[in-house]
Design a protein around this nucleic acid. Sequence first.
RNA 1: GCCCCCAUGGUCUAGCGGUUAGGACACGGCCCUUUCAAGGCCAUAACUCGGGUUCGAGUCCCGAUGGGGGCACCA
Length: 496
Amino acid sequence: MASSTKPARVRFAPSPTGHLHLGGARTALYDYLLARQTGGQFILRIEDTDRKRFVPGAEEELMKGLRWLGLDWEEGPDVGGPFGPYRQSERKEIYQQYARQLVEAGHAYYCFCSPQRLEQVRQEQMKRKEATHYDRTCRDIPLEEADRRIANGESHVIRFKTPLEGATTVTDLLRGEITLDNRQLDDYIIVKSDGLALYHLAAMVDDHLMQITHVIRGSEWLPTFPLHALIIRAFGWEEPEFVHLSVFLKPSGKGKMSKREVADLSKDGYSIFVKDLDELGYLPQGVINWIALMGWSYDGQTEFFHMDDLIEKFSLDKLNPSPAAINFTKLDHFNGLHIRDLQTDQLAAILMPVFTSRGINADLETLRKIAPIIQERLVTLDDAIDFAAFFFQPEVTPAPDDLIAKGLTAAQSQAAAQRVLEVLEGLADVRVHTVEGPMRELVEGMGLSAGQVFGIMRVAITGQKVSPPLFESMEIIGRETVLERMRRAVQLLQTA
RNA sequence: GCCCCCAUGGUCUAGCGGUUAGGACACGGCCCUUUCAAGGCCAUAACUCGGGUUCGAGUCCCGAUGGGGGCACCA
């Protein structure tokens, strides 16, 4: 059942300060699902008010990652929309206007304290083991005086005038009511001395102006959630629904992912960054299915979902507030499921760039023949290289030792290979139906096991001990090449 | 240190006062089998602890413990 029937306007609001990671992708996914399910809008807003942390190219990478995942937005910095601009750095005047409104209404004030003095206050508080907070020196400066000092060019910020008493109750959709004593809240700065708004103000103003109905964000905002409610209420605005998603923990479930662990992951072919996942051989469908289930469940039974299913079945009240450990083996599982779910021609087309990017001269026609026999063996797309690169190599070079079958000597193996070669030479072609019968007869005639003889053939023809099914592979490789490789194997066994 | 949030197998989770505590991944075993997979079957494995409330608590309340988050002119 849909958790909301009226169209939701939902925004994903990242800062362009680094790579899009799994946590961000999951938030964006839930945003997207809610918007699609209700026939609403998914909005991309760039929160780049901190120019010091701005990373060139991050915004582009972010959009590329979202598109790769299949999460497209109808309003954003690149596509525009009726509530733009969608980059906060371009909305400076808007925030200043609303901040001034707050000041005039007595909900905010100008503060002229220097960063140095603030730091000193902080140090003293820490020495006394107190919670660090602004000492409210400028809280009661009359507006006329403040305006005069500003006119004189005095450097200043704007702080929110948090109530000194009472408590603030807010509602998180997953956790219910949360009440915080106002004394725990600081008089937070909402506009910096450079005139740019801080998140607390900017996000609230934008969410209101952009008519956001549901704010889905990380749980790091939970401690300042009451402050945000206070700001919204000071303006007299309607509050959107708030949902705070918990963070992802490292695979062990003990603690969050550290820089070091993020680096170590790549050794195992994993990454928490969306930009890496494509190259690592993951399908967007697999990644989506995986992250959707990290903090959300449908019925506790069904786990295989496409985007369409998720749009239909997603529901905010099935979200789980507890932190979840990232489990990459489960990503492998979902990726395998989605690879197997592909039409073989689709798989062949997807595999094409995987081969060519590694300098393997694959062609689509051959890939289409190979796809059905490797499909169920793939966990990631690049596993196809190990399974099928030999199809495109002019010759293979088996290790002579690998050509010796278990329980046989080199000479015996060579004799077996020789017999296989003779039989194959007598056959008109190497199609499965032509080859399999005679080969099984041969195995029986020689008093050997299928494993022994086919093992020799496999290594001879594919050059490797693990391969797709032998006879199907032979058919794709073709008679000439098969015979050539068998002859080579007989020679190699001579010297083994 | 102060504040906030969370708590079912190793991991992701279902459960919303009475269940043989269900599913998935991983792990182990078996079947299938020319290798590797896929598929099928089986097994091991959980309600953090202590108090309440109740005829009855994984489920409600309190506390402890553990984990996470926050305490910036970052978001």
